[in-house]
Amino acid sequence: MSFKAAEILLIEDSPGDVRLTQEALEAGKVKNHLSVVGDGVKAMAYLRQQGKYAAACRPDLILLDLNLPRKDGREVLAEIKADERLKRIPVVVMTTSDAEEDVLKTYGLHANCYITKPVDFESFIAVVKAIDEFWFSVVRLVAND
C-alpha cells in the first residue's frame, strides 16, 4: 500500500513544542507533511485558504494547542466545528493543561481527541505516534472504503 503523505496542520505558538512535535512525528511510521501556524488567526486563514494561505492544502488532521496568542484554541475549535467545510476535519487538542475546565469546554466543542502533552519526551513521542497511527491507519482506511 502506498499512501499520499498525510497533511497535518499543527497550530502551536511554542517553537519548542513545534520542534518536539515534528521530532515525534518523524519518529512515527506514517509519512506526513506538517504545516505549522503560530496563532488562531493564522490558523483560520490557513484553513479557509485566505491571504497568503490561498494555496494551502486542506489538512487531514489538525493538532491544536489550546493556549494561543490572538485567537485562542477554544475559539479556533469552535469556528472549525461551526464551519460546514471544516467541521469534518478531525481535531486533536494538545495542551499542557489538564485543568478540568479545559477538558469540559473542549469536549463541549466536539474535539475529536484530547491529549495532555507529557513532560517526558518518550511519552510524548508515544502519544504522537498513537494519534498518528489511529488517525491515518484506522480512520482514513475506514474513510477510504
Binding site: S14, R19, L20, F121
Partner: peptide, 18 residues
C-alpha cells in the same frame, strides 16, 4: 503552573533527549 511550568520542563526533557 500547569501550563507554564510544564512547557519548559517538557522542553528541557525533550531537547535533552534530542
Amino acid at each position: 503552573v500547569s501550563h507554564d511550568l510544564r512547557a519548559p520542563l517538557r522542553h528541557i526533557d525533550g531537547f535533552s533527549k534530542i
